[in-house]
């Protein structure tokens, strides 16, 4: 790893100032993607600005019909939060299905969302629940936030502060894991809120996380696994790698979507 200068600002404005003054800075949250990338010299940053000491970036708040989660909240804390389990149990299950327990002790929701790995779980949860991303400059809906592989609408220096989730009537997540990496080969997050259905897919899209409008329309008419039997996703938009061809992934999206509908309130994992 190339030399770097580590900072621990106590306030948001201090973090912004350090970022503005540095040559090639990066914000550090859980560090479980950024630090390995720096170790391999795939990334080099003159300054690492650790956001973990900024108080407003931690914890949970219920605001009317929304659940707000601070960007520095660790996966372990989301998975074990009684409030999350009560309001959106599938989201708690989703956080508990990421990586392993040691990784969950460090990794954060904000870090995962800002990194937008095409096989990460949280982007599917945000897009599938219609979350709102709150930064130090503005608010964005999930549909505008995720813009491509490892790409988001965040501008240089912009800090993701909270994620706000509308509380749905039903939410469920089903994922098929790679046996080796444990990342999702296909993960499908489904929610139903005031008769509107959202279906978001991770692990499969050639351009990262995406929604499947045809599945949503079918489930709005009939929220049952059988409604999806005739639905399909065009493999042309899907990625192919050692874990599976795009045709295989297209089939898995349908299977995982049905499993999600069959298991409301849950996150179910398959191998």
């Amino acid at each position: 790893m190339y030399p770097t200068k580590y900072h621990t600002p106590k306030t948001l404005s201090e973090a912004q100032k350090i970022f503005a003054a540095a040559a090639s800075p990066a914000y550090l949250s859980g560090g479980h993607t950024l630090l390995p990338a720096m170790k391999l010299r795939l990334a080099a940053h003159s300054d690492l600005i650790d956001l973990s000491a900024i108080p407003e970036m931690h914890g949970f708040t219920q605001k009317a019909d929304r659940l707000s989660i601070g960007a520095m909240t660790r996966h372990h804390d989301v998975a074990n939060s009684a409030l999350v389990a009560k309001l959106i149990p599938a989201l708690a299950g989703c956080a508990g299905s990421i990586g392993d327990r040691h990784v969950r002790h460090r990794g954060t929701i904000g870090g995962s969302v800002a990194n937008n790995d095409p096989a990460a779980d949280y982007p599917a949860a945000l897009l599938g629940l219609g979350a709102i991303i709150v930064t130090d400059k503005r608010q964005l809906v999930a549909d505008e936030f995720f813009t491509g592989l490892y790409q988001t609408a965040l501008q240089p220096g912009e800090i993701l502060l909270q994620v706000e989730f509308p509380i749905p009537q039903i939410a469920a997540y089903a994922k098929f894991r790679s046996l080796a990496s444990r990342y999702s080969v296909v993960g499908v997050f489904i929610s139903q809120n005031n008769k509107k259905v959202r279906v978001a897919v991770t692990g499969a899209g050639a351009g990262g996380v995406f929604r499947v409008q045809s599945f949503e329309a079918a489930l709005e008419k009939d929220f049952s696994p059988s409604a999806l039997v005739t639905c399909s996703v065009d493999p042309a938009y899907l990625m192919a790698d050692a874990s599976g061809s795009s045709e295989y992934r297209a089939n898995l999206i349908n299977v995982m979507a049905r499993r999600a509908v069959e298991n409301p309130g849950k996150t179910s994992c398959y191998n």
Binding site: Y6, G31, H32, L35, P36, R101, H102, V103, R106
Partner: peptide, 26 residues
């Protein structure tokens, strides 16, 4: 040395972490 194997697990403030993926300054 890539956060997979867990041979480096130690406890930091009572919680298990993979110490190959956490800086000493942290």
């Amino acid at each position: 040395d890539t956060s997979q194997c867990g041979c480096c697990v130690v406890h930091v403030n009572g919680t298990s972490v993979k110490s190959c993926t956490m800086l000493a300054v942290q």
